[in-house]
Amino acid sequence: MSGSNKKILLEQVADYVKDGDRVWTGGWTVVRKPMAMVYEVIKKRKKNLHLVGNPGGPETDLLIGAGCVIKTETNYIGHEVFGHPYNFRRKMEDEKHQGELFHDDWTVATGALRIMAGAMNIPFIPTRSLKGSDIINPSLDGFQALRGSDDKVPKKKVVLMEDPFWEGDTVALIPALKPDVCLIHAQEAGDDGTVSITGGAFLDYYAAVASGITIVSAERIVPREALEQTAESNVIPGEVVNAVLEVPNGAHPTALHRFYDNDPWWFKEYLEASKDEQRMEEWLEKWVYSMDHFSDYLEKIGFKRLQKLRANPVYGYNPDIKRRLDKLGGVT
């Protein structure tokens, strides 16, 4: 995979994502999520996806709301202070949606350890966490019905074991995470696949190494020589990246360090729509299905609004952006 030019088009991304795949979406809740690629996956009506990104943000709620997901295996699904993940909630709470989504609860530490184990190609890893929590209560396992029959799901959630090497403490063995596909958005990527990220790489290095296929969209695709100048911020080597694509604003409406902040107007409209199934469907038609290209989406958002979100290059965020949705004015 060390060939030089790995550039693809956004329209090709869904070819790498098969129905039923375990998908890692990079970033962290409302930060640096691969939104343009997620919109593309939704547009191509992918089915039965098994989301393993830790933690999940709007991309996870969106994929659930668009009917692309049957399993979620993560520590969190939400939009942070903006509001609640209504599509996820509906699947879990409404009787008429019973059985449509299997959800397996985890934690931040174990999400990190599990994807690290996946990157190391070891089958499991011990942790001191989880003990005493209902997360490992054998009678409260959201994937119980799938264990042993679904080969994308670990046969057990956890095994408690006494440390055989040192003091004999009881530790929890937890299975490695092995995504089929990893989608990451970054500030820059080289045409050879080298990825440069600032403002926090989160768990994306581990995910890129652990996944069968890794695709990286970036604000800019540059010749690999350009990234040789920034080796310190190159967090993923091109060897584990299968394809790269240039998508400016590709993390919108989530934030991208040094480039743009969260779009509060997007969250306001989305949260309102996602409370109701019918309005969610209309939202998807308006913002996803009817868009021929991502540039149409950006045009619909509008230049003025995108300008409002631009980050101050020194701070890495936009110090003027309003973040309180109940007092949010229009884009002026």
């Binding site: 969190y76 709470e93 019973q98 934690t107 966490s129 989880l130």
Partner: peptide
């Protein structure tokens, strides 16, 4: 969640790191 884990009356976002932090 509030209520039964498999059919909650209210489902929340989930642990995040809280479970780990409280344990360790």
């Amino acid at each position: 969640c509030i209520g039964d884990y498999y059919s909650p009356t209210k489902r929340f976002e989930g642990s995040g790191g809280a479970s780990d932090i409280a344990a360790l």
